[in-house]
């Protein structure tokens, strides 16, 4: 389940893009889920661990992925840290829910749109489990 904490969280990594550049593992890039997220969000194709084909930049290093995709890959692969999803646009929301088929905790500072389908998110500030976007707005609005 996706667990979100919506206030300042000491120890959480806010600049996930920078953290990714200096810590990512080659094997993370070629995982099927990473390939799918990179294709969907950045419209780019993973060639191998060190090369990605972008329609804008041509062949590029994984360090040139968008901040949103870097954050998703970190959340999926580095459970030892909690990451802020501030780099993540609404087009990352479905992937956060996908990654959260296992237990995931993120720090969230903005009202992300998780779409119109039902979902399951625990707001750690209150302990409540939320199942739709309307309740999510109501449940976290005071913390944003």
């Amino acid at each position: 389940m996706l667990n979100v904490f919506c206030e300042d969280m000491p120890g959480a990594i806010f600049d996930a893009s920078l953290y990714f550049n200096n810590t990512y593992k080659d094997r993370w890039i070629t995982k099927p889920l990473s390939r799918d997220m990179i294709r969907d969000v950045d419209k780019s194709e993973v060639i191998d661990e060190r090369a990605i084909w972008s329609p804008v930049f041509g062949y590029m290093s994984p360090t040139r992925l968008s901040g949103g995709v870097k954050t998703l890959i970190l959340i999926d692969n580095d459970p030892s840290h909690i990451f802020s999803a501030s780099y993540c646009g609404n087009n990352c929301a479905k992937w956060l829910l996908k990654i959260a088929e296992k237990k995931v905790v993120i720090n969230l500072w903005h009202l992300m749109d998780f779409g119109s389908d039902e979902f399951k998110i625990r707001v750690l500030n209150t302990g409540k489990i939320i199942r739709n976007m309307g309740d999510f707005v109501f449940g976290v609005g005071d913390f944003m």
Binding site: S17, V41, D42, V56, S66, G67, G68, V69, Y87, G89
Partner: peptide, 23 residues
Amino acid sequence: VVYRLDLHKRITLVRGNSGTGKT
């Protein structure tokens, strides 16, 4: 890349989807 930006007010808050070139 080329960015053509029209700024209408003193403070422009840029949001939007990931992967659009903000960073």
